[in-house]
């Protein structure tokens, strides 16, 4: 049996479809329809990844996340509907690993699960990362695109490093600002936009349609993962 996935969602149809998809992809499936049952399952079934719907009938999904995070670092992927950006950011800030907006495709979900499992299994930073043409060697502070050396400023380099350490996962604006400027002050938000823009100009083939650093509107950025 593959990794055990716990799906906490009150919609029977969604649980049923995810069950088919997950089992077909070789995962072990458990489910819960309420927040209370979800927390119980998280404790007893010991899943490797939790897929958590934000709108549960008995409790906020956020509350489930808080309770799970009190004792476990199991990866949690949030399911939410469009327009709940604020809650998504909140969930990511209190420890959710990633999010998906309904309606989503199962293949997208599978990719997120794979990334989550990889980070779970191997949390130590890999010194060398290769994503398509992009080559990063953090032990030598080296960045190459298509075999060409790229010169980055210290902040650009730090940004890329944080994104690469979380490759495939969304990194929130707040997380990046805190890691780089050591503050939660949101006035750095505009600097972040500008450094990302500069970084893209240096590493992206077409900065108008970035292929490495993707924007997650209202949430943060995601460096694509090498599958």
């Amino acid at each position: 049996m593959g990794a055990k996935i716990l799906v906490i969602d009150d919609e029977l149809e969604i649980r049923r479809l995810l069950k088919i998809g997950l089992i077909a992809h070789g995962y072990d499936f458990t489910e819960a329809a309420t927040a209370k049952e979800g927390v119980y399952q998280a404790v007893t079934a010991r899943p490797d990844v939790i897929i958590l719907d934000m709108g549960l009938p008995d409790q906020e999904g956020l509350e489930v996340l808080r309770q799970v995070r009190e004792w476990s670092q199991v990866p949690v992927i949030i399911l939410s509907v469009r327009g709940q950006d604020h809650e998504k950011v909140q969930a990511l800030d209190i420890g959710a690993d990633d999010y998906l907006t309904k309606p989503f495709s199962v293949s997208e979900l599978m990719a997120r699960i794979r990334v989550a499992l990889r980070h779970q299994a191997n949390v130590k930073d890999e010194p060398v990362v290769q994503i398509g043409d992009l080559f990063l060697d953090f032990s030598r502070r080296l960045v190459k695109v298509a075999e060409t050396d790229i010169h980055l400023t210290p902040i650009e380099y730090d940004l890329l490093k944080i994104l690469a350490a979380n490759a495939g996962k969304v990194v929130t604006h707040r997380h990046l600002i805190k890691a780089i400027w050591g503050t939660e002050a949101q006035e750095h938000s505009q600097y972040l936009r500008i450094y990302i823009s500069q970084l893209r100009k240096k590493i992206e083939k077409d900065p108008n349609q970035p292929g490495f650093i993707l924007t997650e509107p209202g949430i943060g950025y995601r460096l694509i993962a090498m599958e």
């Binding site: 950006d85 604020h86 938000s189 505009q190 972040l192 936009r193 500008i194 990302i196 823009s197 900065p207 108008n208 349609q209 970035p210 993707l214 924007t215 509107p217 209202g218």
Partner: peptide, 13 residues
């Protein structure tokens, strides 16, 4: 819900 944004980024997304 306004935030600092780069129009190039919005167009790209």
């Amino acid at each position: 819900n306004p935030d600092w944004s780069d129009i190039q980024d919005i167009i790209g997304v």
